[in-house]
Design a binder for these strands. Sequence first.
DNA 1: CTGTTAGCGCCTTCAT
DNA 2: ATGAAGGCGCTAACAG
Lengths: 334, 334
Amino acid sequence: MSIQSVAKKAGVSVATVSRAFNFPDKVVPATREHVHRVANELGYQPNASARSLRTQRTRVLGVVLPTLLNPVFAECLQGIARAAVAGGYAITPVTTGYVLDEEERAVRQLLAGNVDALILVVSNPAASVALQRLRAAGLPYVLIYNRHPDHPCVSVDNEAAASGAVMRLVSLGHRRIGMVSGTLAASDRAQQRHRGFVRGMKAAGLKARTLEIPFVEDAAASLARFLSATPRLTAVFCSNDLLAVRCIRAAQRGGQNVPRDLSVVGFDGIAIGEDLTPSLSTVTQPNSEIGRQSVELLLRALDSGSPPDAAASRVLPHAFRAGESCAGAPPEAR
Amino acid sequence: MSIQSVAKKAGVSVATVSRAFNFPDKVVPATREHVHRVANELGYQPNASARSLRTQRTRVLGVVLPTLLNPVFAECLQGIARAAVAGGYAITPVTTGYVLDEEERAVRQLLAGNVDALILVVSNPAASVALQRLRAAGLPYVLIYNRHPDHPCVSVDNEAAASGAVMRLVSLGHRRIGMVSGTLAASDRAQQRHRGFVRGMKAAGLKARTLEIPFVEDAAASLARFLSATPRLTAVFCSNDLLAVRCIRAAQRGGQNVPRDLSVVGFDGIAIGEDLTPSLSTVTQPNSEIGRQSVELLLRALDSGSPPDAAASRVLPHAFRAGESCAGAPPEAR
DNA sequence: CTGTTAGCGCCTTCAT
DNA sequence: ATGAAGGCGCTAACAG
């Protein structure tokens, strides 16, 4: 079903058919409707490849994410998908599994796939070969979750959010507060959140203890050790919700009650956290909104012709979602 | 960076450049390497649109899913993405939010987007306008999670899996077993699982009680009512893991201990279930594998030129993952 | 083994 | 307001 066949059947030129679809006002109403009717009868669908070849725009957004197994990114992708569809764009997501080489491969693949722009979360913007390559290609892009002064980013203020969570715990009477983090070297978010934790603890005059959990490792054993060390922690702040969930499990298996013996606070605000028992206390990020705004930024840029730069970065509001996993410190620990 | 520029710079014809990439053996090694080197220097990337226009193949797979907010589909999409990349394909996912009109829109959109094939989960294959449209278009497709004799499907045997779960509960001494289901009318899986539940209960000579929870509704209240009705249930089978999680919450808020007072079994095998406390007992589906196999099916079909038909359907093995949310019935209830 | 060339389907000047 | 025609970048005959 090509534009040719429609033109022939409608008794007009291909130019008219094209205009009837792309610039309806440039065609007299009678012709326009006639063309549309014929196109409809024939089930005509304009060929995206041909259009892209001609216009040099694919109307496709590439998306590079670490994984969909973490609901944070699934929620965000959902937001991206919705916004893209609304804007008449399709998306092509690729996951990297937190592997640097995969990030590069993903960017290369998408560059070759002729996408109009890229949304991505990288391990660390400061040292990302994938990002360099992307910049060199001159393709519009925006980072999400990452935060770096040299790049356009849509994120929350991780450091402030983390230190805010600490303050929250402190105000609940906690003094022996630990942090459980994912691999620090592998993620700027993890670093920023950890920095916020340390800063918050320092501000409160408390000693910061941190457990770093490599991706690969089964966290159970090290978590159990961390949580049972003396003097016992009364609260832990986790750099993401999945860790927090594991933390709660480790604590309960170790005979501690959450939140009576141990308060647990996560980071991310994944939806399922509200359905757990105890429900998860967490620093929420507007995941879907992060996706939406990154799309908005890019579409605006594609429209205006000027790719987003660092100045276009947006810091979205975070919030503390109080859940049952967090309570006041036991009296004797205060 | 077009094939032209590479040809010129390399002092060969465009045909040779094209061949050097697509049929390396048809070019003498010296020329081939020369071309590759030049292409590399120029940072040449073949234009996907032009190639698609010429070959009539986009090397893109469309994916239609209800939502990414349910980890089942996120896990599956991850499997699809991985398999697609491995096969040199990109994917374009679209979510429908369980809304029929959206299914149709999604299919239309992807049809227009010139994808080579479609992977989709629809509400109900028996009555899906989207599916009819798709068939009419003649595009290769495969359903996942759905199960229907007239379509190529990759799924598990929901009915057998559900009745198996009931038998499991029965063998644990449970007799007052209820089922919590999502909207039955809106999903063939839900219907199949419910049928399996009813069958299993009948086989055990037990009375089946079912609570159907509409999508929109906040499940908490109705769940609480269902779980506290007399005579009290000692076990509930949920038609998906998200419901099971909510069920556990409702039970605990109602003062019941899981699994001591109430055993809860889910369906899906979402990864996070293992990290919960109590860990989730559930009927697992190989979500990632479902994705992988659907891609395999399609790529094979695209290769051979004959679209998959109902006979190509695959029923993958389910399994019962014993978790802490399920235990023997209390003695007095047996 | 390599080159020449038609044409995939569409948009977009340039005429009319 | 509409039509004619070139060309986007590539692949695949076909020729040499």
